[in-house]
Every structure is written in structure tokens, then in C-alpha cells.
């Protein structure tokens, strides 16, 4: 019996729980992005309760059939709590299945981050503060990246992956980092205080555009670097990321257009829309929210690519601990 086969049940459980965590977190992020799009963060004025009820005992019909803002905000809280519980289960499974120190560290980080994120969400409501909202929006993708990393590292086949070229590692790691920085810049734009002066906003937009160019360049670099690296999975992920980045650029332009229209005065007058924009339209909200969610997905995919190219290679290599190998030897070969 090979080593990897012997580890399948335990590693598989951790991987399955991590995948559930990634899936539920994705939905949570969609709700979070919608909360910001619809300015619904203050739809529930108290925390940790909801309008005086225990959060879990708030009448579901009042939530589900209630106002849209309440549906988003309370739904975001319920999903947050669910993600917290899954994170705890994942940490327990990771510990019980003797995963590598890196995976256990990431599981611990996930628990810590989800707790911090919950408290930040509460503070955002209780203080009604945009600064806290910005930090909350930056921690969300960080948690998502950690969850994706755990799911990738606990995948059975990841232990057989070898490192690719250092250029591939650098481009993939840089892409993940640049994508996260983009999400941070995006959070500053989305949670912008109306008192901010135009010069600051201009600077933020310029930074976000430069970041978009950097992410696009790194995505192209990742495709080129993984082209002949002998890791088909890395190649596939890099191509998928490039496609996502292309869609993301289009959504970025769309997010501007649905908010402020075509930049008339900069483009020929004949390009002007003959009808005014429609504020708070479903189409507009979908484009803007889609831009945020796709950014998170690119981050998640970049984390997978980073691991596939060899970032955290040491963590993958030591997925099976020596003591575990000894026990296995005694059990299987004695």
C-alpha cells in the first residue's frame, strides 16, 4: 500500500470540510458585497443580536420575506456564523488528522480571522464607522485566501506536486499578492466616505487602475511561466486566471459606467447615452457586485496557482508527519 493511499480517508475529510468552507465563504462574500452595494450595513442596528432577538432565533419569515436590506444584512450575519462554525470544525479535523504544521497554522489563522472578522462586523454596526467597514472588507478576502489554501493543501494529489521554475513561483505569488492589494484598494473605493476630497479619490482610482494593469501583467506572466513547467494543473489554472482577469477588467469598466456613465467630455459626444443612467438598478448592482466577487475568485485561483507552482512547497512536502509515518509503518508493514 502506498503512503498516499493510506492517508486518503483522513486527508480527504479535511479536504472535504475545507471545500465546504470555501463554498460557504463564497456565498458569504457575495452577501457581503451586496450589503455594501445596497448600503444595507445599518439595516440591523444592534449586534450580536438582531432587533433584540438572538441572531439565530430571529423569525425566519420576517427575515426571508422582509425588506431587501434586512435580508442581506441578517443573511450576511447568519452565513458569517456558519462560516465560523465550519472553521472550528475544520480546525478540529486538521488537528485530528495530523496535517502539516503549515496547514494547522492556516487552520488556526482561519479561526482567528473569522473571529476577528465577526467582531469587526459587529464594531462596524455598533460604531457605524466606515474605517471599520474598510478593515472588515479587507479581512474577508484574506480569510477566503486562507480557506482556499487549506483546501488546496489538503488535496491528496497536492503532495505529489513538485516545484516549477522560480519565475513561475514568483509570478504566481506576485499575482496573489497584487490581487489582494487590488481588493484592498477596491474596498477603499467602495467604502469611501462622502467627506473625502476629490484629490484623494483621484489618487485611489489611479492606484486601482495601476493595480489592474499589474494584475493583468502578472496573469500574462503566470501563463508564460507555467507554459512549459511540467505542471499541467498550473498551466490550466494560469489560463483560467487570465480569462477571469479579462472578465474582471470588463466588469471594472462596467462598474464605472453603471455608476457614472461614459466619461462624456473625454469621449466623443456622440457616445453619450441618450437615456440617463438608472440608479440602484438590478443590472448596475449585479455589475458592481460581480466586480467585487470576481476579484475574490481571482484571489482564490491565484492562491491555488501559487501552491501548484510551489509556493508553500515545504508545507505540501511535510503533509505527513514522521510520527504518523512510524504509526503507519507499524500498522501496515509490521
Amino acid at each position: 500500500m502506498s503512503r498516499s493511499q493510506a492517508e486518503t480517508p483522513k486527508t480527504g475529510l479535511a479536504h472535504a470540510v475545507a471545500c465546504v468552507l470555501v463554498a460557504v465563504t463564497s456565498v458569504l462574500l457575495c452577501f457581503g458585497a451586496l450589503v455594501t452595494t445596497f448600503d444595507a450595513a445599518m439595516a440591523v442596528p444592534d449586534w450580536p443580536g438582531t432587533y433584540g432577538h438572538n441572531m439565530f432565533l430571529f423569525p425566519w419569515a420576517e427575515w426571508f420575506y422582509g425588506p431587501w436590506d434586512l435580508f442581506l444584512e441578517h443573511g450576511h450575519r447568519l452565513l458569517g456564523a456558519l462560516v465560523g462554525m465550519i472553521s472550528l470544525v475544520l480546525a478540529a479535523v486538521v488537528w485530528r488528522t495530523h496535517q502539516s504544521p503549515a496547514v494547522r497554522g492556516l487552520a488556526a489563522a482561519a479561526v482567528l480571522l473569522v473571529l476577528v472578522q465577526g467582531v469587526l462586523g459587529g464594531a462596524r454596526v455598533l460604531l457605524d464607522d466606515k474605517t471599520v467597514a474598510k478593515v472588515h472588507a479587507c479581512t474577508g478576502p484574506l480569510f477566503f485566501a486562507v480557506a482556499v489554501a487549506i483546501a488546496t493543501l489538503t488535496r491528496r494529489s497536492s503532495s505529489s506536486q513538485s516545484a516549477t521554475s522560480s519565475a513561475a513561483v514568483r509570478s504566481a505569488g506576485g499575482l496573489a499578492l497584487a490581487t489582494y492589494v487590488q481588493l484592498v484598494a477596491g474596498a477603499q473605493l467602495r467604502h469611501l466616505d462622502a467627506s473625502v476630497d476629490p484629490a484623494t479619490f483621484r489618487w485611489l482610482v489611479a492606484f486601482h487602475l495601476a493595480g489592474a494593469a499589474a494584475v493583468a501583467a502578472l496573469a500574462v506572466a503566470a501563463v508564460l511561466c507555467t507554459r512549459s513547467c511540467g505542471q499541467p494543473i498550473a498551466r490550466r489554472w494560469s489560463l483560467a486566471i487570465l480569462l477571469l482577469v479579462g472578465c474582471q477588467l470588463a466588469l471594472g469598466v462596467g462598474a464605472w459606467v453603471v455608476n457614472w456613465g461614459l466619461p462624456s467630455g473625454w469621449l466623443p459626444a456622440s457616445w453619450a447615452f441618450s437615456d440617463p443612467l438608472l440608479a440602484r438598478s438590478v443590472w448596475g448592482a449585479t455589475v458592481v457586485t460581480g466586480h467585487v466577487v470576481l476579484g475574490m475568485m481571482i484571489l482564490g485561483a491565484s492562491v491555488v496557482l501559487s501552491i501548484a507552482t510551489g509556493v508553500l512547497r515545504s508545507a505540501v512536502k511535510s503533509t505527513v508527519r514522521p510520527q504518523q509515518a512510524d504509526r503507519l509503518r507499524e500498522r501496515a508493514f509490521a
Partner: peptide, 21 residues
């Protein structure tokens, strides 16, 4: 790995600005 984690955390904290709005 630690360097990347540190950078991410620092970026996250810097993004908060200098205090309450």
C-alpha cells in the same frame, strides 16, 4: 510564507487609515 503573511496583514491594517471616520 511569513513575509507574505506579514505584508498582507500590514496592508490590511494600513488600509484602515488613521482612525475612526
Amino acid at each position: 510564507f511569513s513575509r507574505i503573511a506579514f505584508l498582507l496583514a500590514a496592508g490590511c491594517l494600513l488600509s484602515a487609515g488613521c482612525g475612526k471616520t
